[in-house]
Design a binder for these strands. Sequence first.
RNA 1: GGCGGCGUGGCCAAGUGGUAAGGCAAAGGACUGCAAAUCCUUUAUUCCCCGGUUCAAAUCCGGGCGCCGCCUCCA
Length: 481
Amino acid sequence: MALRVYNTLSGSKEEFVPITPGKVGMYVCGVTVYDNCHIGHARANVVFDMIFRYLKASGYDVTYVRNYTDIDDKIINRANRDGVAYNEISERFIKEFDIDMARLMLQLPTHQPKATEHIGEIIALVEKLIEKGYAYQSDSDVFFRVDKFATYLKLSKRNLEDMQAGARIDVDERKEHPMDFALWKGAKPGEPYWESPWGNGRPGWHIECSAMSMKYLGETFDIHGGGKDLIFPHHENEIAQTEAATGKPFVKYWLHNGFVNINAEKMSKSLGNFFTIKEVLDRYDAEVLRFFLLSAHYRSPIDFSDQNLNEADQGIERIYKALAGIDERLAAGCPGAAAGEETAELEEKLGTLAARFAEAMDDDFNTALALGHLFDLVRSVNKALPMAGKELLERVKAEVAGIAKVLGVCDTVPAEFLKRMQERKSSALDISVAEIESLIEERAAARKAKDFKRSDEIRDLLLSKNIQILDSAQGTTWKAK
RNA sequence: GGCGGCGUGGCCAAGUGGUAAGGCAAAGGACUGCAAAUCCUUUAUUCCCCGGUUCAAAUCCGGGCGCCGCCUCCA
């Protein structure tokens, strides 16, 4: 039972063998901080958070680095538009990013470096590339010489000729080859800049990741991740720069997550069909969103829609209801505990859960299958609950907690989660709690008087307002649907 | 045009050679004054289509159709 991961570089699943036994170095491309993040960013970050958690749970000592790209054309454009300094924009959206990630229950990476705090390392790397003949200055820009790097495009598996045939970009006369890319960009008047041997300027987009990943993880490290859209050009260029400079392999395993789609089309800024994390969290619980994102394999596209989010909501509530049932029974002292067919089934499911979970996760982080196993357990729990004893229920809780910690879902106290969902749904009702409760009292009186016509009228009236009546031996409660 | 991916029940989604997980939804039953929740049962002889390989294919090979992504910044 060993972890296998899909490596974009080889195009196949490979056994995960870290460079240094017991340790993992992982770098994930963060965001360019020029605006609020959308659900696509949420997916990438949740996915790699899950991977980070699972590697740790598997016993690895993980160094996880996720950068902030805090200097870039988009940041400058936004700053000009808003009439503020570039760093006002970057600092603001770093804060917003941190808030969003915290709401999505992400664990903090080991390091979160910023490009602007590594200008020295970037300049040194560019100088080394010039020295080795892999880069050249042209005006106040520095470009990477792609045809000098023999294995260029090995990650995206293309060739230079085809790329140029399909190229839609204007040819820059200052480049030796149309595909050469910028390592350093000279500053135009009014732009932010740092001093360099090539004049005042700023780093190109790709070089920062090479400089920062090497600084924190060494010249060769285990895992580099990001969205599929970064394969070309970003990751391809990172490989070229870094391997040209060091002469060593850059990264052992390249992992890429699939897109979030809207109506089967990629969510993106340019298409304008995106939802920000903040917008979505106004309408859905963060844990529901996380659950939704983990309900498909991380490499598959996932379709964002109200229906799919509502299904995720129903699904996670099913799990929490079972867990809440366990807590209630434990609090009541497990009356009438007895072994039977049902508890035997639960024992059996429980005994294999950890192994089935590990097997799913070891197969390229198959969270969809892992969640399936959790639902499987839930069914057995519900069945056995009326007769289950304390020891068995405590074990269920412990096993589920272990899984919840890795996935970052179902990790809340069940009663609190369900209450939170109720509050969220209740706040959307167009009827006050006082009105609901008075109607319920009236219904109780009608029921007592066997006036079922009236009691049913009240129930249907409430139902029409999305309120479900729940009768039990302890009395009547209600919930928002 | 080049490269890559996908097509599994009403919907979502696992499953890469051994005879279709799981969730949502729906229907019937138990429970209930009636409901809801929960439990039980049912819902793909079949995995886009057509060929082929094999004792055996959703899974491999060939062809076709459809959808998507990358090739420009993008998670």
